[in-house]
Amino acid sequence: MTLPTQKLINDGNAAVDEMLAGILAAHPDHLFRPADAPRAIVARHGPRPGKVALVIGGGSGHEPTFLGFVGKGLADAAAIGNVFASPPPQPAVDAALAAQGGAGVLFMYGNYAGDVMNFDMASELLEMEGVEARTVLTTDDIASHTDRAKRRGVAGNVFIFKAAGAAADLMLPLDEVERIARHANARTCTMGVALSSCSLPQTRRPSFDLPVGEMEIGMGIHGEPGVRRGPLRPADEVVDEIMDALLAEMGAARGDRVAVLVNSLGATPLMELYILNARVAQRLDQAGLGVHRTLVGPYCTSLDMAGASITLMHLDDELTRLIDHPCDCAMFRHG
């Protein structure tokens, strides 16, 4: 029996609510929680009459995803689930009703069976209230399935939500925001590698067994097993394997431009992320691709998992404009 992992928590079952209390205390200018909606977090600035409400959400444990991307120019609200568990329908309904401005609601979240069931129930409840809600699932994790529609949504959420949020902030109608969200998702690819297991606050045990000296290629952000396991290799070789897969999937032409995200799964430090990014930049240069913007840091984590993911968004003029659009969120600012 392994020893419990060390965490700075009080009570594993209270971890999410205590985290929310801390976030609301830290970011009162950006975020608030509507009365009687303990698991809905809404942007102070952003939601307004006539604007499509972008409501994101999912399980906790991926911070700053999801609630860190709530703010003017990005998402209007987030529904917060338990650790690695979809929120129930009610927080999604609460978030949507608090954020909606009469132009409809777009739910965006990663493609997981539980999230789909709960958000679909939320959409049904909203329909009964006369609020139109549509859904765009993110499916950027290329390691998770050969069929794009069955893939998981992972760190690419950052760029995909960013594009959709900008479209909504530009007061585009629901049809357009939905189209752009699908377009952004279709052009975003991610692949990751895990070096150690995460552990849940409730169990404080590793969620899976990953022996020292090994890594798991393609692992999901909840510790779902990836495509294969192998010995840990130097950073450049790991980047090469991931970049080979991403570039093959993306099919970009020389001269095209991309946005890059080198993301920590939680425990991997910035030093290692920048080492990875040095090789990412070389590979993109060799492929003749221009880098429009690079994000490096913990953007979509998996609690205390060690590992990293690389995301490329294949830009076009429309996506470039939307990625450049300013946003001001509690944990993400641009422009």
Binding site: N82, A85, L200, R205, D209, H222
Partner: peptide
């Protein structure tokens, strides 16, 4: 709870026992 979480750790995200208990 813990036995179900351990089973889930093999094929999923390790939280099934927590969800069922809660």
């Amino acid at each position: 709870r813990d036995a179900l979480c351990a089973l889930d750790g093999l094929v999923g995200d390790g939280d099934h026992g927590i969800a069922m208990e809660q």
